[in-house]
Design a protein around this nucleic acid. Sequence first.
DNA 1: GCCAACGTTGGC
DNA 2: GCCAACGTTGGC
Length: 150
Amino acid sequence: MRYWLMKSEPSEYSIDDLARDGSVPWFGVRNYQARNFMRDQMRVGDGVLFYHSSCAEPGVAGLAQVVKAAYPDATQFEAGGKYYDPKATAENPRWVHVDVGFVKKTRLMSIAELRGYPELAHMQVLAKGNRLSITPVDPAEWRFILGKLA
DNA sequence: GCCAACGTTGGC
DNA sequence: GCCAACGTTGGC
């Protein structure tokens, strides 16, 4: 059982969208490190902090969980699509993703609030220059955040 | 809109 | 394999 933080731009896909859909294929990741996390480390049942990025109020907006292990991202084969990858083939897909399921919507825990807690000082998502859309969360950090959201 | 930081690309 | 140029991310 591991814990993760996954960023999504709410204008693209928000916690409310996930609440409506129940679960969603986490398509569109085109970063190898983030892909490798999904492919190599994410397991069904892993906990997810659903994070809103690139918006007026960036921060943790809800809780989710991994509900399906990694499989090929269909959008890499969609010629002309935003996520098309000409080097990907059905035999050798380059991009995979997990499915993420809704758990609950929480109050917004802003990035400023996150930065304010010494207990979270080493959170990877808060590290200077971090741009990864998927980052691991320490169990202690996970428990601390859930406590603050309770 | 700005810009720091980072990942990727491609020429050499 | 190096590294400059370029594109993207994402908070502010």
